[in-house]
Design a binder for these strands. Sequence first.
DNA 1: CTCATTGCAAAGGATTTGCACTAAT
DNA 2: ATTAGTGCAAATCCTTTGCAATGAG
Lengths: 145, 145
Amino acid sequence: MEAFRAFLRDHNLPVTAQRQAIAEVVLESERHLSADDVERDLAVRGVMVGTATVYRTLEVLVRSGLVVERDFGEGFKRYEPARDEPQHEHLLCTVCGNVTEFSDERLERMTTLVAETHGYARQRHRLVIFGVCPDCQRGVRTKKS
Amino acid sequence: MEAFRAFLRDHNLPVTAQRQAIAEVVLESERHLSADDVERDLAVRGVMVGTATVYRTLEVLVRSGLVVERDFGEGFKRYEPARDEPQHEHLLCTVCGNVTEFSDERLERMTTLVAETHGYARQRHRLVIFGVCPDCQRGVRTKKS
DNA sequence: CTCATTGCAAAGGATTTGCACTAAT
DNA sequence: ATTAGTGCAAATCCTTTGCAATGAG
């Protein structure tokens, strides 16, 4: 939050109410939000921000390094605050769409090795495990978040 | 190819020229084609098929189990013939978009274990390693495929 | 003949862009 | 004052759908 204001100032970018509201929503969220989730969350808080502004600000947040963009192949992107953990993977519930994180250092090594083997200069990797979360297995949650 | 015709007959689906042409392109390809690639490849062969038909036929091919749908987070889906190899991962060149396959049985076990640890009923996983392929490192290929 | 497929164009969902207007510095 | 940000609507990209015309069985 404060870090974002600092980033904006350092880059001579105007610190607007919209930008701060969007940053607040994303940075304080525990979840992996879609652009639409962000806009809706803002609306709930009584703050109306244009869709274009949401997208544009998410882009700035990503550039600032404070937020990470994810694509789980759902047809839209999700955003999560960049926490300290350098690298982590995701478990995606195919029923309710909830996301759980985990990390495994072996993956880092394994993927680097595989890339080298094929002559690739590795940049990054993405692992998503699809399954049904505990709640949905009990038939609790039915749909969406 | 013949297997696809058999699938269509078994399911009382008309064996049309378009379906056969599309199946031929995808099943004989060594690459991971987008719907657009398929349509373009057909055009090159002098066969004009409507976009909707391409998508609809790809869906049938996927249902038949002869083709697998992939999403590498590029904003569109790719299709590859389902070869014998039960499970394999992908290396995607971020410069030219080319895809290289590899497999590692450890991943299967690792992901199942991780899912269990978090109470998830594992269904499948997806791993993509992004990097720069050998050709692009040498500055050969410049863009797209 | 009968019903599914085809093609085109319109519709859709997510995201981007052009542009007049407003606000930050 | 300047310059960048904002909102709205139009535009894009990939994919899907409605519907009349067409073709397979």
